[in-house]
Amino acid sequence: MTKINIISGFLGAGKTTLIKKLLKEVYQGEKVVLIENEFGEIGIDGGFLKDAGIQITEMNSGCICCSLVGDFGRALKDVMEQFSPDRIIIEPSGVGKLSDVVKAVKDVQFDSTVELDSYVTVADANKCKMYMKNFGEFFNNQVEYATTIILSRTKNIKQEKLEEVVKLIREHNKEATIITTDWEQITGTQIVAAMKKDNSLVDELLKASDICPECGHHHEHHHEHAHGHEEKECSCHEHEEHHHDHHHHDGEECSCHHHDHHHHHADEVFTSWGKETPHKFEKTEVENALKALSETDEYGTILRAKGMVSGADGNWIYFDLVPGEYELREGAPEYTGRLCVIGTNLSEEKLEKLFHIS
C-alpha cells in the first residue's frame, strides 16, 4: 500500500522543516518519494533534502494547480512505477490552493494499493492574521481544506496572540485538528497521529465548492476552459528550510495590496525572480541585502527570499527570509550560487543590483 500525504502551507511556513522531522522520527525505513512543486525560475530546495535520501521531482515549469491534469498526474504515475514507494509526500507551492491539489490527486486513476493519508497545512502563527488579510484567496484556502493545521513558530508567541490565531483559523475551518505546541516539545509520532484525522470534511468541501474538472478552480473562475480559449499557464514555486528566528522585526502588518482577490491564478498575484550567480559574497553583504528586503518596500513587497551563495571566505552562505525575519547559516557547496525572491510588484532591476547580477 502506497500512502499519499499532502503537506501544504504558505510561503516560508516551514513545510520542509516539518517534512525533515517526520522523515527522521516517523518514516525512517520507509521508501519515501517527495514531489515538490516550485514557484519561480530557479529550483532551490532540491539540494536541501539530498541528505535524507529522498528522490525529488521538481516541476519548475508550471504551477501544480494548473499542470496537475497533465504533468502532475503523469509524475505521480511515474513515481509509482519507478520507485514503488511506501509513501509519497506532496509539497505543493506555497502559493498553491490546497483544494486544487486535493482535487487533482483524487483525479489520478490509481488502483486499490494507493491511499490518501492526510491533507495538512503548515501555518506560521506569527503571520496568519497578516496573510489572511492580504492574501486570503490563497492562504485561507489552505486553511479551509486541511484536516490538520500545524502552527509553526509558536515557541515564543504570547498566549493571547496564539489564542487569537486559533480563533481566526476556526472561522475558516471548524473541524480540523490544530497543533499549537512547539514542535521541539512533541514527537513526530504525535504529529502524525493528529494528521490521520478522517478526510470526510475535505470531500464535503470539494463537493460543495463545485470545482471545475478542467483545472480544479471554481466554475466562476475567469478562465474559459470549454470554449476553445488557450489556458493561461502559471509558474509557481516555493520551499522552505530551517528557521531559527535570528532576526526579528514586526511582521504583523505589511504593505501588501491584494486584500480582495477572487479565483486568481498564482501568477496573476505573485511574481518570482530567480538567478544563478558565481559572485562571492561577504556575509555582511548578504545580511545587509536581507535587511533591505525585510525593512523597505524599495524592491517590492517581499514574501519570501531564499538562496545559497559562495562566501568570500570560502564558506557557503545559505539564507531564508519571510516577512519580519531572516536567517543566515553555513551550508554545503553547490554547483553555483542560486537566488530566489517571491513577492508582488518586484523590481527586478533593483534586485539584480542588490545581488550583483551582471
Rank of each mutant, 00 (worst) to 15 (best):
S61R: 14
T17K: 09
E30M: 10
L22V: 15
K50W: 09
V32Q: 12
K21Y: 09
G40Y: 06
G46M: 05
T16M: 11
A52T: 01
N60V: 04
K21T: 01
M59I: 11
Q28L: 02
D51M: 05
I42S: 03
D51A: 10
F39W: 11
Y27M: 11
G62C: 07
I19F: 06
E25S: 00
G40Q: 06
F48V: 09
F39N: 04
E38F: 08
I64L: 05
I44P: 04
K50M: 14
K20R: 05
I64A: 01
G47R: 05
F39C: 13
K20F: 02
N37I: 09
C63A: 08
K50T: 04
T17A: 13
Y27V: 02
F39A: 10
E36W: 03
F48T: 06
E25K: 02
I42V: 03
V33H: 09
E58S: 15
C65D: 11
V32D: 05
E30I: 00
L49F: 12
V33I: 13
G53H: 08
A52F: 05
I54L: 12
F48R: 01
G46V: 08
G46S: 13
C63Q: 11
E58F: 15
K15F: 08
G53K: 07
T16R: 12
T16L: 14
D51K: 12
I64W: 00
L68R: 06
K24W: 01
A52S: 11
E41N: 11
E58I: 11
D51L: 07
S61A: 08
D51Q: 03
Q28M: 03
I54P: 07
L49Y: 01
